[in-house]
């Protein structure tokens, strides 16, 4: 039992299950498979963005521009679709990924070559990308009737009982697991955050690892731009305002160390689902949206306290071992 509790992914999964069970006693049908699938689908975009954010955080950086990137890219592809209804959807999606990756590359270059702290860079580009969305659209909206039906419907198409949006999230989770666990880039991301100096001595280009993490985060934000606009059937400057904080929160709750180098894909997914369950449950049991924000905030701080305590414990174990060894000697 002790060992089970020490595995924080398992613990988080247990907490989520208990929460679902608890909410089900207050709102009948909350735990029904259809509703759970719905919650997952609702959280899909957060999962995708949080995985990009996680990669950046692993390298001891942070990307505050993901939501602004999403807004700009979403606006760009929505306007293209409205202006040239003949463009194939596949091209638009590829374009969304490429634009997002390019915006991410701007962040990455500033961090890598100019050595500006990531929080400053992305705080700057956050406002720049939002501003670009405004300039691009002139402050106007792109509404559902202006977009082509294909553009709007793709994420909703059910395949084997789940919408394509959900399947896409699952595919990205698997791909990200592969990238982080099985590629040299993934390993260099962990090493760059875990101990940048040691990484340099081991022949890893820490700046390049950070750059690639920002490009990856940007590409996922671009893809999410299309998904968001088609899912909510509208594009305007302020979509997903403040959503970057949700992605950071999902990472922190999922056990990603804000100091870099520690964390797993499954932890991030569970962190995002945790937020998704709360977001979907609180209105059902009649709690106001303002209280929701406060509750999310409390949960995030608790998660950070929990992380800090988990890391402290390890230090004590080392000392005890050393003490034991001294006794033997």
């Amino acid at each position: 039992m002790q060992r089970l509790l020490k595995n924080r992914e398992l613990l988080l999964a247990l907490i989520i299950l208990v929460m679902i069970g608890g909410f089900a006693t207050r709102a009948a049908g909350f735990a029904a498979p259809a509703n759970l699938a719905n919650i997952f689908n609702d959280t899909s975009i957060l999962i995708i963005l949080a995985l990009g954010q996680m990669t950046v955080i692993l390298t001891k950086s942070i990307d505050l521009s993901v939501a602004a990137n999403l807004a700009f890219t979403g606006m760009a592809v929505a306007m293209l679709d409205a202006a040239y209804p003949g463009l194939p959807l596949a091209l638009l999606i590829v374009l969304a990924v490429v634009i997002g990756a390019a915006l991410g590359a701007i962040n990455g270059f500033l961090v890598w070559l100019l050595q500006i702290p990531p929080i400053v860079v992305t705080l700057g580009t956050l406002t720049i990308y939002r501003g670009m969305a405004f300039v691009l659209s002139g402050g106007g909206w792109v509404n559902a009737h202006q977009m082509t039906p294909d553009f709007l419907n793709l994420p909703r198409l059910p395949v084997l009982g789940l919408p394509i949006l959900s399947w896409l999230a699952i595919a990205i989770v698997l791909a990200m697991w592969f990238v982080l666990m099985r590629t040299p880039f993934g390993r260099s991301a962990y090493a760059s955050g875990g101990n940048p100096t040691a990484a340099v001595y081991a022949g890893i280009d820490v700046g390049r690892a950070r750059f690639l993490a920002f490009v990856l985060s940007g590409a996922l934000a671009g893809l999410s731009g299309y998904l968001w606009v088609s899912r909510y059937a509208v594009a305007y400057v302020d979509i997903a305002a403040g959503f970057e904080l949700d992605t950071v929160a999902a990472c922190v709750i999922g056990g990603i160390s804000i100091a870099g180098g520690i964390g797993t894909v499954i932890g991030t997914v569970l962190g995002a689902l945790f937020l998704g369950v709360i977001k979907n449950a609180l209105p059902v049991i009649g709690i106001s949206p303002f209280a929701q924000m406060a509750i999310s905030g409390v949960v995030i701080i608790l998660a950070v306290v929990f992380n800090a305590r988990a890391e402290k414990k390890k230090g004590r174990i080392i000392l005890r071992e050393r003490a034991a060894k001294e006794k033997l000697a």
Partner: peptide, 8 residues
Amino acid sequence: RHGLALEM
């Protein structure tokens, strides 16, 4: 400080 990533 320079040699190891302790969490790895």
